[in-house]
């Protein structure tokens, strides 16, 4: 097992290198000029040229990429063109809000979606099933920002229960932190919830039609025990897979959610950096996201062994 984990971690190195090359190349050929944005609307073309030169943006691709990669290998993601702050510092400022949001979103999604999916499969064809599926369709088809504005209007402006925006660190207390994250987590989690509920239902339906379930029923196993111990455990592998895949969509959704709820997380950092063409920040964040994604996939692979003893590495 440990050898497998070690091999997988080693395998991330060429993946990260390819990601680095791809991102750097993409930004190099993409239109846009940070020097023009820094200089501002009143600056002359000559000012823009001077700033571009001072930032080293007029140097050849190979030189810039080689220099950046050399620093990355040493753990230095560079310095933001705009803020003059180290990219690692900017990421460290933003990682807690995003991680808090994702953890809460995952938690809320899992504790609601899995029972919903199980229930829908168990009550297949009834109004319960249809209600769960209708909720899932609503979750899929409503954009995050629409849900976000609706939630903010109802629970912040009308009922005054929760704040409209902002983030409070967990170091200042669990409730103040949760208070700010509940609405964004629900907004962000709705799609994820719908996805997991549908997959859980479909997988459970498949498992519930298997012979061993019929056998369990014939042997007099109670419905709860049959659902939770026999059916859900065997349906877990596809559900865990979809949770892992959904992590990527969660990152994408976090970009919008963090903007709507003004959460100072990595999603907003990414958007701001892209709009400003802050290349070192974009490169740093994309590398981080890629690394996180690789780790999540590794975690998913390892979880398979828990749910299915036949899987061995």
């Amino acid at each position: 097992m440990f050898a497998y984990i070690f091999r997988r971690v080693l395998a991330t190195i060429p993946v990260m290198l390819l990601v680095a090359l791809f991102v750097f190349s993409l930004l190099y050929i993409a239109p846009g000029d940070p020097a023009a944005i820094i200089a501002g609307d009143q600056a002359t073309p000559e000012d823009v040229d001077r700033i571009r030169a001072s930032l080293g943006l007029d140097r050849p691709f190979v030189v810039r990429f080689g220099e950046w990669l050399w620093h990355v290998v040493q753990g230095d993601l560079g310095v933001s063109i705009f803020t003059n702050l180290p990219v690692t510092h900017m990421i460290s400022q933003r990682i807690e809000p995003t991680m808090s949001l994702m953890v809460l979103t995952l938690f809320l999604s899992l504790i609601t979606a899995i029972p919903m999916g199980v229930l829908a499969a168990w009550k297949h064809g009834t109004w319960v099933d249809r209600l769960v599926m209708a909720t899932a369709v609503f979750g899929f088809s409503t954009p995050v920002f629409v849900v976000g504005y609706l939630l903010a209007y109802i629970f912040a402006l009308e009922l005054d229960w929760l704040p409209v925006q902002g983030f409070v660190s967990i170091s200042k207390g669990l409730w103040p932190c949760l208070r700010n994250l509940i609405l964004p987590a629900v907004a962000l989690g709705l799609v994820f919830m719908a996805l997991i509920a549908r997959i859980t239902r479909a997988t459970m339906l498949d498992v519930l039609s298997q012979d061993y379930i019929r056998t369990a029923r014939a042997k007099g196993v109670g419905e709860r025990g049959m659902l939770m111990r026999h059916a859900l455990k065997n349906a877990a592998v596809p559900i865990v897979t979809i949770v892992g895949i959904g992590f990527a969509s969660l990152i994408g959704g976090a970009v919008v959610t963090e903007s709507v709820f003004a959460i100072p997380g990595l999603g907003r950092l990414t958007v701001d950096a892209i709009l400003r063409r802050d290349y070192p920040v974009i490169q740093g964040v994309v590398l981080l996201f890629s690394f996180m994604y690789v780790l999540v996939n590794l975690g998913v692979d390892l979880l398979y062994t828990l749910f299915d003893p036949r899987i061995r590495y």
Partner: peptide, 8 residues
Amino acid sequence: PDGATAAA
């Protein structure tokens, strides 16, 4: 960054 959020 979002004008609607600022107004709210």
